[in-house]
């Protein structure tokens, strides 16, 4: 009996070591941790990417929703997994903001960032019968009303709003709603004056005319809203938005990271994934490991300036 146990353990230990070795990666199913609940934007991007990547890697990718703490729980969980490349984590902009607010122990440094997947600007939205026609109107009203203009916030604190507030030295009454699906009805029903969400979250209301897009918070106009001027064009130098990418625990071997990176490049270029992102009015923004890491470092600095 003892002998059997010993040999089994030895064999198991060998397979264990083998599974860590990067040469035959991937040799089993891969998990993808999504730090938000099923049905949200991050979840659907994660699932679509998993679906597109599984054919490239020839291994199934199982999406695992691990929600809580505005993404902190899932991302911390992902950072703490075995660094063998079998646990991927969808990292979102919260990895740059939450640690600085003391709401998350892990930081972006606990990950090896593999690829950025999408980068979407925020859009400033008011209801169709709102008196404001452009950003200047809005900023003027905010100054006049001195903090009484009601802003439907999709998160607390809201960095899109804080960027505008800081640059224009204004203050809005930010009312925290639980995501875009609550903030948009609050504007539609005229319970609040203005909101800022990403294009994908409001494209149907913008197209139908229920919501008016006053400006896009990007460097250049975006393909989904060609008629909407940027804030820069209107004389307000505010660029902000949100991004998502994929990371693995920081000690993952480089060969594995490269294999995954190449697989994601193919997956993001696949017609299915492109079509999915286009349908959802999201912009694929493929940055490689180095550029993505650099980008996140900068974003941490930007957000730090807003937070402190």
């Amino acid at each position: 009996m003892k002998k059997i146990i010993k040999t089994t353990l030895a064999a198991a230990a060998l397979t264990f070591i083998a599974s860590v070795s990067a040469a035959d990666y991937p040799s089993k199913n891969i998990r993808m941790v999504v730090p938000f609940s099923p049905g949200g934007g991050t979840d659907s991007v994660g699932r679509a990417l998993a679906n597109a990547t599984k054919d490239v890697l020839d291994q199934n990718i199982i999406v695992m929703n691990r929600t809580g703490g505005a993404g902190a729980v899932g991302m911390s969980f992902g950072a703490g997994q075995r660094p063998d490349g079998y646990t991927l984590t969808v990292v979102t902009r919260e990895i740059a903001s939450l640690p600085q607010m003391g709401l998350m122990q892990h930081t972006a440094d606990d990950f090896k960032l593999i690829r950025m997947v999408n980068l979407d600007p925020a859009v400033v939205l008011v209801s169709q019968d709102s008196p404001y026609q452009n950003i200047a109107d809005l900023v003027a009203a905010a100054k006049k009303k001195d903090g009484a203009l009601k802003f439907a916030s999709t998160a607390k604190p809201n960095f899109y709003l804080m960027a505008l507030e800081k640059s224009q030295n204004i203050k809005l009454n930010a009312i925290p709603y639980n995501g875009a699906s609550e903030a948009i009805p609050a504007v539609l029903g005229n319970h609040t004056d203005v909101t800022m969400v990403t294009p994908g979250e409001a494209i149907s209301q913008i197209k139908s005319g229920q919501l008016k897009a006053l400006g896009v918070m990007s460097e250049e106009r975006i393909a989904y809203l060609p008629q909407t001027p940027t804030l820069k064009e209107q004389g307000f130098d505010v660029v902000t938005g949100t991004w998502r990418g994929i990371g693995v625990p920081k000690n993952t071997p480089d060969e594995v990271v490269e294999t995954l990176g190449a697989a994601f490049d193919k997956a993001m270029a696949s017609p299915d994934f492109k079509q999915f992102m286009e349908n959802g009015a999201m912009t694929i923004h493929n940055l490689d490991a180095k550029a993505f890491t650099e980008f996140v470092k900068n974003d941490v600095k930007n957000l730090g300036a807003l937070i402190n």
Binding site: S37, P38, G39, G40, D43, S44, A48, A180, S181, E182, I184, P185, L188, S204, Q205, S208, Q210, Q275, F276, N279, G280
Partner: peptide, 20 residues
């Protein structure tokens, strides 16, 4: 309105979007 009424319809919304 194009906004989900509960968690299930949030996923259904995703399904509609995926279908273009």
């Amino acid at each position: 309105l194009g906004v989900p009424g509960d968690a299930v319809t949030a996923v259904l919304l995703g399904a509609l979007v995926i279908q273009g």
